[in-house]
């Protein structure tokens, strides 16, 4: 599947071109690397963090890796992925730029700028137009994929950061507070979705274990709407709290939400509910007092 027909034909047609480009890369390695760095500086294709010596190091490594990769016989179109060294160098280079604040477009353009340099040098190596064309096609195939890889790596790096941040945000938006001895509360504010409810459940259960809490209050005063999925999630949370051996009280069910829940036909009858957080706390204290006198804490 990967060695598609086009790759095979263009590769076999271009075996001469391949050798020629390799030769150009080898013979002019330093000049190519220097010129590439110069182009990047001219076209402002860089973020902030890179020193010129780092750029030169990077360029030398890339040029050497390109020559080495072309020396083998793997399909040109796949080299940026299939050649280990080349892949690593393009990946590192892209990540470095992503961290330095360059945009993904600029980063892949920087890789593509190498095309211009190679074509310039190629013109010095041959005057034959057929040969020039074949070599140009090959350079395009090679570097287009490298540019795409660079773009992809950049986006992926960003994606990872976004992922981490949104998780941190979730953690922050669902605090578990200790209201009373052995009584915890989670005041929920804003829309509830599956991801958020899962974080709430995790944090709450962990806090119950850590504090040996007997009652957990989930206050939904700040939740604008409740649909079937959210109601199910709330039920799951209540059930999980019970499985751990604690009780759960839901407070702050506003009239419209109570109506929705009734209309959805969700049975919350087995769940202790209170109108306000204050009422819920009163109920919770009563629960913790019940086994208290002869139980967990002495008097």
């Amino acid at each position: 599947m990967t060695t598609s027909d086009t790759a095979i034909t263009s590769d076999s047609v271009d075996s001469g071109a391949r050798a020629r480009v390799t030769e150009v890369l080898r013979a002019n390695a330093d000049a190519i690397a220097d010129r590439w760095v110069q182009l990047q500086l001219e076209q402002a294709l860089l973020g902030s963090d890179l020193t010129e010596s780092e750029l030169h190091e990077e360029a030398d490594a890339l040029v050497a890796a390109l020559a080495a990769a072309l020396d083998g016989d793997a399909p040109v179109r796949r080299l940026a992925y299939s050649d280990r060294d080349l892949n690593r160098i393009v990946t590192d280079l892209s990540l470095r730029r992503a961290r330095g604040g360059a945009s993904p477009t600029v980063t892949s353009l920087a890789v593509l700028a190498l095309k211009q340099v190679l074509l310039e040098h190629l013109r010095g190596a041959t005057r034959e137009s057929d040969e020039l064309l074949a070599a140009a096609v090959l350079i395009n195939q090679l570097l287009d994929v490298a540019g795409a890889l660079s773009f992809e790596v950049y986006v992926e790096g960003r994606e990872a950061i976004i992922h981490r941040q949104s998780h941190q945000l979730l953690e922050m938006s669902t605090p578990v507070v200790r209201l009373w001895r052995q009584v915890l509360a989670v005041p929920l504010i804003g829309t509830l979705d599956t991801a958020r409810t899962q974080v709430v459940m995790e944090n709450l259960l962990q806090a119950i274990q850590d504090d040996e809490a007997l009652v957990a209050i989930i206050d939904i005063t700040g939740v604008p709407t409740v649909d079937t999925a959210v109601a199910q999630h709330l039920l799951q949370t209540v059930n999980a709290v019970r499985l751990m051996g604690a009780d759960c009280v839901i407070s702050g069910i506003r009239p419209p939400i109570a109506q929705t829940i009734a209309q959805l036909g969700i049975d919350l009858s087995t769940i202790l509910t209170r109108a306000t957080l204050a009422d819920a706390l009163a109920a919770a204290i009563k629960i913790t007092d019940a086994p208290g006198p002869d139980g967990t804490d002495g008097r």
């Binding site: 995790e202 259960l205 999980a240 709290v241 499985l243």
Partner: peptide
């Protein structure tokens, strides 16, 4: 019961 076990059980649909 550990918290991860409790969460997994309710998601599994077991009360």
């Amino acid at each position: 019961m550990r918290p991860p076990v409790a969460i997994t059980l309710v998601e599994l649909g077991i009360e």
